[in-house]
Amino acid sequence: MTMSDGHPAEDYLKPKLEALIEGAVSAGFSRDVTVAVLIDLLDDSVALDVETR
């Protein structure tokens, strides 16, 4: 795994997201479905939360 240059948030979050995805795959969920659900969760809740601030 390579770390991005100058993006500490990505460096911090990427390993955690990869571990979350691998945990879901180990629990029997496909990688594609897991990523799609994460995107959907972020798209719905984070965007709405940011808009209200």
Rank of each mutant, 00 (worst) to 15 (best):
L41N: 04
S45A: 07
D43A: 09
V25E: 08
V33D: 13
V35M: 12
L42S: 05
L41Y: 05
A36P: 00
A24N: 04
A24I: 01
D44F: 05
F29L: 13
A47Q: 04
L20H: 08
S45C: 09
R31V: 00
R53H: 14
D43M: 04
D44Q: 09
V46K: 07
A27Y: 01
V25L: 03
R53P: 01
L41M: 10
A36K: 03
A27R: 10
R53T: 07
S45R: 05
V25W: 04
L48C: 03
R53Q: 14
L48T: 09
I21A: 08
D49S: 14
A36G: 09
D43E: 12
D43Q: 10
R31M: 04
L42D: 02
R31Q: 12
A47L: 11
A24S: 10
L48G: 01
F29E: 06
V33H: 06
A36R: 03
L42N: 06
S30F: 11
L42M: 10
V33K: 11
E51Q: 15
E22T: 09
F29Y: 10
S26N: 13
V50F: 12
R53I: 11
S45F: 12
V37N: 09
S30Y: 05
D32T: 05
D40M: 06
L48W: 04
E51G: 03
A24R: 10
T52Q: 14
S26R: 13
V37Y: 10
A47C: 07
D32Y: 02
S26Y: 02
A47S: 11
D44N: 09
T52M: 11
V33L: 13
E51V: 10
V46F: 15
A47T: 11
V25R: 05
D32S: 09
S45Q: 08
F29S: 05
E51W: 03
A47I: 10
I21K: 05
I39P: 00
A24Y: 02
A47E: 05
A47F: 06
D49W: 14
S45L: 15
S45M: 11
T52D: 10
